[in-house]
Simulated scan of single mutants.
Amino acid sequence: MNAPPSLYKPTFRTATDLLVVHCSATRPTHDIGVKEITHWHVQRGFDTVGYHYVIRRNGTVETGRPETAVGAHVKGHNSRSIGICVAGGLDAGGKPANTFTAAQFAALGQLLDDLRKLYPDARILGHRDLSPDRNGDGVISPDEFIKACPSFDVAAWLSGRELAG
C-alpha cells in the first residue's frame, strides 16, 4: 500500500551533478501540475511525485519533492540530480513535439538560473540525453534515445540563451 504524501519520508541527496529537464508527455490542451503527476506516480508505486519541480502551461513553477530529496525521475541518476518536468511534450495527435509555451520556457530559464547558483557545477540536460550510448561513439544520437523526453534539444535551447550566474 502506498503511503499518503503526508507520510512521505525522503532520502536526501549528498551531491547534485545534474539538472534534468523532462516533459509530462501530455497534449497542449492538458494543463497538469504536481497534483496530477503525484496521482500518476503514486498509481505506479512511487511514494509521491518523482520530480522536484513541475512547470505548468502558464509558466507557474510548482514544487514537487523537496529539492534536497532524492528524486524518482531518471533511473540510475536520481541520487545526484534534480528533476524538472515541463507540462506538455506531445502534439494534438499524441506524437512527441515541442509544444511548450513561451511562459514555460521563461520559467524554465529562470528556474535553471536559480538552480545553477546553488549547484554551479551541475550539468543541465534533457532526460533523453541520459540514454545509453549504444554504438559507443561517445554521442547520444536520436536513434539511441530511449524516449523523446523532453521533446526538445535542451543543449540547443541553452546555447540560444545565456544562463545567469
Score class of each variant (00 low, 15 high):
156 A>V: 10
125 L>I: 02
136 G>Q: 08
123 R>A: 12
121 D>A: 11
117 K>Y: 11
144 E>A: 04
125 L>T: 04
114 D>I: 04
138 G>N: 01
104 Q>V: 06
135 N>W: 03
111 L>P: 03
108 L>S: 08
131 S>T: 10
116 R>H: 13
149 C>H: 14
143 D>R: 11
145 F>H: 14
150 P>G: 07
124 I>R: 00
138 G>W: 04
144 E>S: 04
129 D>Y: 03
145 F>L: 06
115 L>S: 02
117 K>H: 13
141 S>E: 15
155 A>M: 09
134 R>P: 05
110 Q>Y: 00
111 L>G: 06
137 D>W: 00
141 S>M: 14
105 F>D: 03
129 D>N: 11
101 T>C: 11
145 F>R: 01
148 A>D: 12
138 G>H: 00
105 F>W: 06
136 G>F: 09
121 D>K: 11
139 V>Q: 15
154 V>P: 02
138 G>R: 02
116 R>A: 07
110 Q>M: 07
118 L>H: 14
139 V>S: 10
128 R>W: 02
109 G>P: 05
114 D>C: 02
139 V>R: 15
122 A>P: 07
150 P>W: 06
104 Q>K: 08
146 I>A: 15
135 N>A: 00
145 F>Y: 15
106 A>N: 15
106 A>Y: 02
118 L>A: 14
142 P>E: 11
101 T>M: 12
101 T>I: 11
115 L>Y: 01
124 I>N: 00
144 E>I: 04
133 D>F: 12
103 A>L: 07
129 D>T: 04
133 D>E: 05
158 L>C: 15
102 A>Y: 08
110 Q>A: 11
118 L>T: 14
125 L>D: 00
130 L>V: 02
154 V>W: 00
147 K>V: 15
